[in-house]
Design a protein around this nucleic acid. Structure first.
Lengths: 228, 228
DNA sequence: GCTAAATAGCGTATCCCATACGCATCGATC
DNA sequence: GATCGATGCGTATGGGATACGCTATTTAGC
């Protein structure tokens, strides 16, 4: 997590690219590579993103990729930030509660569409321009509807943290949760976890909609603290 | 995520081990292997947990490990559930708010102590007996202080989701956040993210304590919904 | 045009990893 | 002590990431 990681993501953020024009022009670009890698991850899982597979898809040699990305780990970071660069637009809203609700749902939708990104998000990684831009945008919205600057970040962070955690059980259509509840039917297992088992009878139905439920509780709590 | 994954984690949960006593006794055990793997992950990161490294530490041959765990992926699942099997005990509490607050802080402490576990937790994985036991325990506490059974799971889930998301920026002492704020000092970068930059001036101080802040907001929201 | 500089494409070789297979080994049972 | 059932593990295989260096393609300057 050195300064180098940041240079990778942010290069050219301040200075314009020198581009001397000399030399062979590139058919491959970092953008094409990252986009194709994201496509593979979406369709087949992050595990299947190998330099070989990626190169085959792009019709290039494996080592050519290294002219555009320093390595596999860095590629994953770039993939992640590319998701954040083009998220669904935030819906319009007149109150900060609605702004935050919209934000939370956007975060949710993003990770449901790209399940591989969740473990990446929860790993150690530098903040990229895509993510920064997205956050900056919400902060702007919050300021626009009257939330005083300086209070917004904590609120966004709180909603963001919840959304990130809450989207996990939903990935895969909640299949892991369902499988577990089915497993609890076994009396020998149920006896070891009486409280869980009691809920299993009520059924996974209670579990559905937990995202909206939790989101509203979080917003309630924020409203109580900041005033509506 | 088939039934097989569950058998791995739950084997012997219902039936006692047959243990015919015949054959060579095992020096290696699944417990020893998993414990050593956790030690490596804690000290050097999950990435450094390779079958070779692990075998060297245990003083055994690489392939011996496969007599006790089916493979690397399954090992990671076992590592994760072993963490959940021996978490810090929940502090005593008389109100469900305090029970949940204690639970949230336990979750936080656990992941701060084992940062590698966070991406594992957010990946697709089956629920193991350790995790189930932990959750069952909180549900029991909640019932004991008067929270009606049937409402507890959603509350626990909400707090859990928040805690899981919120612990992420704290891992590594918040160094990634700090590095980013330092990066925002660059005027060329700051101009692209005016709202973030405004906060960077106020300093990362606002960011510290965001876990407690968010946790209290979540609990406020739950209290408002369920009554104190 | 011609040459040199700069840059992209990529084949080969290396090293690390997970793991299938089969043999050797060891203890308990008969 | 012969057999059975389980463990310990060396070897071989197939992938993956990537360092290195050569080749090919452009443009800049003459």
């Amino acid at each position: 997590m050195g300064q180098g990681e940041y240079e990778l993501l942010w290069e050219g953020a301040a200075s314009a690219a020198p581009r001397p024009g000399r030399g062979r022009p590139s058919g491959l670009t970092r953008e094409r590579i990252v986009a194709e890698a994201v496509a593979i991850a979406d369709a087949e899982g992050l595990q299947k993103v190998s330099m070989k597979h990626l190169a085959d898809r792009l019709g290039s040699g494996v080592m050519s990729l290294y002219r555009h990305v320093p390595g596999k780990d860095e590629l994953v970071v770039l993939m992640y930030d590319s998701l954040m660069s083009a998220p669904a637009p935030l819906p319009d809203a007149d109150t900060w509660r609605d702004v935050l609700a919209g934000w939370g749902r956007c975060v949710r939708d993003l990770f449901l569409a790209h399940p591989w990104a969740l473990p990446v998000a929860t790993g150690d990684r530098p903040m990229g321009p895509g993510e920064a831009g997205w956050v900056d945008q919400v902060l702007g919205r919050l300021a626009a509807v009257g939330m005083p600057e300086g209070t917004g970040l904590l609120a966004v962070l709180t909603v963001d943290c919840f959304a990130l955690g809450a989207v996990r059980p939903e990935i895969g259509g909640g299949e892991s949760t369902g499988a577990f509840f089915r497993f609890l039917q076994d009396p020998a297992v149920a006896s070891r976890f009486p409280h869980l088992a009691a809920l299993a009878v009520a059924g996974p139905a209670t579990n559905l909609g937990h995202f909206e439920f939790g989101l509203q509780r979080v917003l309630d709590g924020l409203e109580q603290h900041y005033g509506a």
